[in-house]
Design a protein around this nucleic acid. Structure first.
Lengths: 347, 347
DNA sequence: CTGAAAGCGCTTACAG
DNA sequence: CTGAAAGCGCTTACAG
């Protein structure tokens, strides 16, 4: 079916058209449509002009407005990779929602963690004169950000620059107490930690999120009087790592009453190791975790976990960018507990 | 730390600045920088102008160019929901990559499947005069698309309109032969189908992808001489559905040699049911599936599956949009077999 | 071969 | 109270 569906551009209705159609000047139309209070045009004319504008389907040309104002009502979002986990997609959702509320649109770019790509994306967005730039990172490693000398306001999400910047982070430290408290409510007194993170342990300042997650956890567990039977260091946080570590833990002679997993993928591996060992996850061995990725809901029993609040972080970024004065503060966003079925009820 | 990091806008370098700095007219600078061949300016002057432009860090103002040309070098991508599965995020990656290659940027909006949101997003993007619009859908249900009377070229990804449109679909029918052929290579002669889709069975024309997936499958299985021991109809395609169906299948008396699962989530549920039944997925019971979501790689053994080529579909959309004449054709993108560990080797 | 001028669609300071 | 004019930064048809 060779139907040509590329429609030829029909000329758009302009301010001049509205002016002509309603028999007043462009100035008047502009004043009326923008509700300028200073110059009082008769309400009758105003109503008539508004009506014609509406009838004609007039929409101001944004390119013209941008040229006039030097503002584009556009925000840029640059992320490392959108396909991996909920990380970027969650931020996108939050950013889009908040941007829409403020009548802004958002431009996207992906860097795959490569510095030249980042630099190029920043240049491109500055070039398009976005009103603000949001940089999203998958892990919160401290890094030196290139190409940020431009004059556009910047907010970092889930990351830090070596320069002072506005940034938004999940409140990992508080998440630790959330978990410890929930465990206490289930009357659990001995837990195993599957696992810590090798590189983060070696360079804590480079991995603020991971470091805070475990600092919060150990401090809160102690405060709740919950003992740690052991903690397994992992190279990475994939199911296979969780599987191996949990297997090693089960081979030991210090059985815990529950497992705290570093993240949901680790928990998935832990489930597999428990099953292999004849232990029903969540029943014979309660499990709690961090992140709330998609798989958390798919697991059987569904996994109770503390959510990384990507959407809220994205929203917050927009609010800060559009809300006026930007200061080089770190903003913490709370991590909610997502209660599912892998933990005994509170008592 | 209250450092103000909102930098005041320093005036951008304009064409006029370059002209003044190099002692020629704006016309000349424009001609030179755009490599207009017609008017031959001395190569010496040209070089000097290019040099000053570079030194000054001149970048043409896009708003001005847009105003002049009525083109924005911007594409719009509207999707239902970006947080769910790889669906939208994969398309985004493909779209961004292709757009970058053509020196375009992309604007995003999310509709959550709501018609008013869709209508609004389309209006907003037309208003911003995107050069093309990509509409991405999560399931390929036939639907009536509102607000598309605008003059902007449109491509549908993973969906159809009641109007003739350019659209891009995965080649589900061919995927059926891919699966059947792979099974034949593993010397499998009897399979169970977990499961079909109730609504798709009732309204095949509304669910082209699902319908094609199973049509391709049954036809190819027959061609390869592989028998179907049974097929289980599912209300939905989540792990719990796969679990229930597989359990029912296992209770029957027609044991298959392999399972074909409707998608990876169904396969995840099948794994759980198999394990419960003391059967090792992939070893005692080979499994093959469709989609290649994240979980496919996490499962143990990792799942062999036929990938939904979202990235390629996104790329293709951009190519079509920017490649000139748009015709109301359906473009089929091949679905590659992702070989992992849930199927015996080929013989 | 090169420059002055007009115009894309808007807004606003300035006259009338 | 209302309109003509200038200008945002670019490109191109038109004179010189």
């Amino acid at each position: 079916m060779k139907v040509d569906v590329s429609t030829p551009k029909t000329r758009r209705v302009t301010l001049a058209d509205v002016a002509a159609a309603s028999g007043v000047s462009k100035t008047a139309v502009s004043l009326i449509l923008n509700n300028r209070p200073d110059s009082r045009i008769s309400e009758q004319t105003a109503a008539r002009v508004r009506q014609t504008a509406n009838d004609l389907g007039y929409r101001p040309n944004l390119a013209a407005q941008s040229l006039r104002f030097g503002k584009t009502r556009t925000l840029g979002f640059i992320s490392e990779q959108v396909t991996v986990t909920r990380f970027a997609s969650g931020m996108i959702t939050g950013i889009l929602r908040a941007a829409k509320q403020h009548d802004h649109t958002v431009l996207m770019a992906e860097t795959f963690g490569e510095e030249p790509e980042l630099r190029q994306a920043i240049a491109q967005m500055s070039h398009r004169e976005v009103d603000g730039l949001i940089l999203g990172f998958m892990d919160s490693r401290l890094r030196e950000l290139p190409g940020l000398e431009s004059e556009v306001p910047v907010v970092l999400v889930n990351g830090h620059d070596t320069q002072p910047r506005t940034c938004i982070m999940p409140d990992e430290f508080a998440a630790g107490s959330t978990v410890a408290h929930r465990l206490q409510q289930a009357a659990i007194t001995r837990v195993a930690l599957i696992g810590t993170h090798r590189r983060a342990t070696l360079h804590p300042e480079s991995y603020p999120s991971i470091t805070r997650r475990f600092a919060g956890l150990t401090q809160a567990l102690a405060a709740e009087g919950i003992g740690i039977t052991g903690q397994w260091e992992l190279e990475d946080w994939n199911p296979s790592d969780g599987f191996t570590a949990t297997r090693a833990m089960l081979a030991g002679n210090q059985p815990p009453q529950a497992l705290i997993c570093a993240n949901d993928r680790v928990a998935m591996g832990a489930y597999q190791a428990l099953a292999e060992h004849g232990l029903r996850p969540g029943i014979d061995m309660p499990v709690i975790s961090f992140d709330d990725e998609d798989i958390a809901a798919y697991l059987r029993p569904a996994l109770t976990t503390v959510r990384l609040p990507y959407e809220q972080m994205g929203e917050k970024a927009v609010e800060l960018l559009l809300g006026g004065q930007l200061t080089a503060d770190e903003h913490l966003v709370p991590m909610p507990l997502i209660e599912r079925d892998s933990l005994p009820a509170r008592r």
